[in-house]
């Protein structure tokens, strides 16, 4: 139970910790904005946890997948808006809420299901602390490593790359619902970095790494990353001389 909890925490807490790092680095969020993010996330997560069972039953059992896909698309669109929008901090917060809430809701479901078993509680608590510690350490390492390169272009570029990676997760969900067909894996790098390993989880959270990606996933990832980077460059070269561009 302990190891399993650590693995689940890495899967769900690591993307959240990395996302908050990117928000702090790229948008220099202040305490008030972080409080808004926290409250909004708590409410959204509670709604997702409470409605999950009933939503899952809709659309021939694919209701939660459709909801997740919609939330990931909203997150990506607002991440793009955060590049080129007057209220760029608000757009970044709106982009972050669905991603954090989806991961948090997954972990809360596990906690609620097994936290009530008293014999499992110590393992779950220790595993949660260990998983949170690893996730926070990696996120802080990211902040320390990237702080010297804290230019608008680099940070916004990494922010959009991260959000594109999150949004690419919609493709396996659409394949799961039967909307998109799978194709054969284009390559298999699981011998070098397995999806189940710590590095696999980190690269998945950061870049959307898949050890055996298929064509629909790769094309979507390339399109989302490409579109995002074009928007970053456009914004950088169009507005870098203006006060708004310089401040963002």
């Amino acid at each position: 139970m302990l190891i399993n909890t650590v693995i689940l925490m890495l899967r769900d807490a690591l993307p959240i910790a990395l996302l908050i790092s990117f928000l702090l680095l790229a948008f220099r969020l202040q305490r008030q904005t972080l409080v808004v993010l926290l409250l909004s996330t708590v409410i959204t997560t509670a709604v997702l946890v409470l409605l999950r069972n009933s939503v899952s039953d809709t659309f021939d059992g694919a209701g939660y997948e459709w909801l997740t896909v919609a939330l990931l698309l909203i997150a990506y669109l607002f991440a793009l808006l955060s590049l080129d929008f007057k209220a760029y901090r608000s757009a970044a917060i709106i982009a972050a809420i669905p991603v954090i809430s989806l991961h948090l809701a997954d972990f809360m479901l596990y906690l609620f299901a097994f936290g009530s078993h008293s014999e499992r509680l110590p393992g779950i608590l220790v595993g949660s602390v260990l998983g949170s510690g690893i996730s926070l350490s990696l996120a802080m390492l990211l902040v320390v490593l990237l702080s010297p390169y804290r230019t608008t272009l680099a940070m916004k570029s990494l922010w959009v790359l991260f959000m594109a990676a999150q949004a690419s997760g919609a493709i396996p969900l659409l394949q799961q619902t039967g909307v998109i067909d799978e194709s054969a894996a284009l390559w298999d790098s699981s011998v070098i970095i397995s999806d189940a390993s710590e590095y696999g989880h980190l690269l998945k959270a950061l870049l959307g790494y898949e050890s055996q990606p298929d064509l629909p996933y790769l094309l979507t990832w390339l399109a989302l990353v490409g579109l995002g980077q074009c928007m970053v460059l456009r914004h950088h070269f169009l507005f870098r001389s203006s006060p708004e561009g310089a401040s963002s």
Binding site: S56, P172, Q176
Partner: peptide, 24 residues
């Protein structure tokens, strides 16, 4: 399943559907 790239929560005393394939 990492190999199938699938994740699906199935609640207690409930059922869930998911599609796999076409696979080699």
């Amino acid at each position: 399943s990492f190999a199938l790239n699938r994740e699906k929560v199935v609640f207690g005393q409930a059922k869930a559907n998911l599609f796999i394939g076409p696979l080699p």
